[in-house]
Amino acid sequence: MTALPTPERIMELALTTTPSEASVATPSPAARKKCDVLLLISSAAAAGYERRRRAVRRTYLTALREQQLQGTVEYRFLLGEPPTAEEGAALDAEQAEFGDLLRVCVPESYETIFAKVVAAWRWAVATHDFAFWMHADDDSYVRLDLLLGWVRSPAASPQEGVYAGYLWDGSDGRRTKPLRDPAQKSYMPVEQWPHDSYPPFASGCGHLIACDLVGKLVELSPSMSFFRGGVGAVANLRLVHIEGVRPYRPLPLFRRETLVQHYMQPEEFRQFHERAVAAAAEADGGAGPGGGAAAPESEQRIAAVYDLFVQAKVLRR
């Protein structure tokens, strides 16, 4: 495995232009594309992740072809530099077919997620006029109907300074401490974060940041330090908890009120999508696939037990 550049060099790369899109240094307001939500879906340039992107394109992103949603949500899959020339060639072919990849000049690694996001913020303000910037993972299913409902609800207003998602803010057992074991995926070195706890932050599986706040973060980006893995701990903002964002897998997996469901396998997207379409159709007064029927009795019993464990703080929602 090739060693990563120094943290300082990684952040320098985050501030450069992207190889596949126009420079982010001199945005033209007149040329920016308008949308309610600019969705960046974190993926990876390594081989194998194309399965996740294919599952996302074939399920919830199909809604963007519907007339009533056109122009409301724009998206890109966020990728770093491919590890090999062969993987780079495969991404070139994927981009030629779909045109939905944002490849930034940051080395591809779980450790460099924050730097990739910084690059995506800079690209976003240069190319789009959006109300909210959103980050989701490529193993998250996003209910776009519920997302737009939330964006247009009183919970999202006023928009200034909003940072919304599943908040780890100390309430209802939603607490987290830095993991100091280097073997852990979310390992946090003491030199990067010496404190015993994090400030409130939203799960990366699906969170939103208001346009004005993204602009401020871009202004600050030249002075930002490398931060391993996370995004939320760098900002001080107006926090909004969204109960429908689920960083964990509930029982049963599909819930009608779920806005973002994390930890989805590619083969699970289709069935989850069919049930989400049916639920949306029922909410609109239609039948939809399966008639929008209520969940089977067995699922309802499982859900009731699961909710009891959540209320008792034995499980996390």
Rank of each mutant, 00 (worst) to 15 (best):
M1A: 13
P5G: 05
P5K: 13
T6G: 09
M11A: 03
E12T: 07
P19E: 06
A22M: 15
P27Y: 07
P29M: 13
K34R: 15
C35I: 03
V37G: 00
L38H: 03
L40E: 04
G48M: 05
E50I: 00
A55M: 08
V56Y: 01
V56S: 00
V56H: 01
T62A: 02
R65D: 01
Q70G: 06
Y75C: 02
Y75A: 00
E81N: 13
P83T: 05
A85M: 13
A85K: 14
E86N: 05
E86D: 08
E87V: 10
A90I: 02
L91V: 00
E94P: 04
A96R: 10
A96T: 03
F98S: 00
R103A: 05
V104P: 05
C105W: 14
P107D: 08
P107K: 08
S109P: 10
E111I: 06
A115C: 06
A115H: 03
V117H: 02
V118D: 02
W121D: 00
A124W: 01
T127L: 12
H128Y: 09
D129S: 12
A136P: 12
D137L: 09
D139W: 07
S140E: 05
L144K: 03
L144D: 01
D145P: 03
L147A: 03
W150M: 00
R152E: 09
S157G: 10
P158Y: 08
Y166G: 04
Y166W: 15
L167C: 13
D172C: 14
G173Y: 14
P182A: 11
P182E: 09
A183P: 14
P189K: 08
Q192R: 10
P194E: 02
G204Y: 09
G206S: 07
I209Q: 04
V214G: 01
K216G: 04
E219G: 01
L220W: 11
P222C: 04
S225V: 03
S225A: 10
F226G: 04
F227R: 09
N236C: 12
V240D: 03
V240T: 06
H241D: 11
I242E: 04
E243N: 06
R249D: 07
E268R: 06
Q271T: 11
H273G: 09
A280Q: 13
A283N: 13
A287P: 13
G288F: 05
P289H: 04
P296K: 11
E297Q: 13
E299V: 05
I302L: 11
A303T: 08
A304I: 08
A312D: 09
K313E: 15
K313C: 15
L315W: 15
L315Y: 12
R316H: 12
R317L: 15
